[in-house]
């Protein structure tokens, strides 16, 4: 019966291979999300933890399940949440566009270097990760502030007469986010460009296409999966970005991250904070699924 046991071993192996990523997702994504979803259906209380339990014992020994949907009504009745979502989505989209505009030439440049230069150049792209993100964003304050590096240089050169307001506004937020997320765009783009068949570009040029047409008709479509991957990698965390707007943004910078902070800390309302978070996930997952669907459909012959 050796064969059977081998068969079983193989089946077990298959099961484990499939189960491990699912366990991982379940433990690190689904479970926390369900906890947050659960809290979003509760109501705030002055206690540890600071919300009412969903399930409680009534006096007569009955088990009572109390679900508050009021939190969801709240975030749709007060426009502040929708405005914050819209502004976060807009900032994330603008960040994607600029990281793409900067990251594509950068990735292209690295991918077209001699083999021996690629690794050091990639290392340079990743080098900032060795420093705390917080410190790097603080450095931007020094660069952008009224008597900072940029204004100092421009004043000294006589280009401007009084400092430009480039800190504590949306411009600074975009600068900081583009800076922070650029590597997330460059790396997947590089991965795709690096394995691209360069003879295709030569073929296009040989067939009479000028460089711009080669780029538009061949390079771009072939790099599309990298562009999609990079854009998602930038867009998703950028929507929930808290640090950059908090440090570089102005008082009127309204983001979903700041809204969450307010609910969590200023209002001590974990249920509403959870509701905002659940709505954010719903807002992101919808377009993502649509995109994924589109991609798998596009990949099929």
């Amino acid at each position: 019966m050796r064969g059977l046991s081998e068969e079983r071993k193989r089946a077990l192996g298959r099961f484990l291979v499939i189960a491990i990523p699912f366990l991982w997702l379940g433990a690190l994504f689904l479970a926390p999300f369900l906890i947050v979803a659960k809290i979003s259906l509760s109501s705030a209380a002055v206690a540890i933890p600071p919300y009412e339990p969903l399930i409680s014992w009534a006096d007569d020994g009955a088990l009572v399940l109390t679900l508050h949907v009021g939190n969801y009504k709240l975030i749709f009745s007060d426009p502040i949440y929708l405005i914050a979502y819209a502004s976060s989505l807009r900032n994330a989209a603008v960040t994607v566009i600029f990281t793409l505009l900067l990251g594509f030439p950068l990735a292209y440049f690295i991918a077209t270097r001699d083999q021996k230069w690629r690794a050091p150049l990639l290392l340079l792209v990743m080098l900032p990760f060795w420093t705390s993100f917080l410190i790097r964003v603080y450095a931007w304050i020094g660069i952008l502030k009224p008597n900072g590096v940029i204004n100092g240089a421009l004043l000294w050169l006589g280009v401007i007469e009084k400092p430009l307001v480039i800190l504590n506004n949306n411009f600074a937020v975009i600068v900081g986010m583009v800076y922070g997320y650029l590597p997330f765009m460059v790396l997947p783009l590089y991965a795709h460009l690096e394995k691209m068949d360069w003879s295709l570009l030569e073929a296009a040029s040989d067939l009479g296409a000028k460089p711009f047409r080669v780029f538009r008709k061949v390079t771009l479509p072939l790099a599309a999966p990298g562009i999609v991957a990079g854009s998602l990698l930038v867009f998703i965390p950028a929507v929930g970005e808290y640090i950059v707007p908090a440090l570089l943004g102005g008082p009127d910078t309204l983001t979903i991250g700041a809204t969450l902070w307010n609910e969590f800390f200023s209002n001590r309302d974990w249920p509403v904070a959870s509701t905002v978070a659940v709505a954010l996930v719903a807002l992101l997952v919808g377009p993502l699924l649509a995109l994924q669907h589109h991609r798998t459909k596009g990949a099929r012959p």
């Binding site: 068949d197 003879s199 073929a203 040989d206 061949v218 479509p221």
Partner: peptide, 12 residues
């Protein structure tokens, strides 16, 4: 015009 060794057909 050139015919490439790998043919270099545009896959898309």
């Amino acid at each position: 015009n050139m015919m490439f060794q790998s043919y270099a057909l545009f896959p898309h």
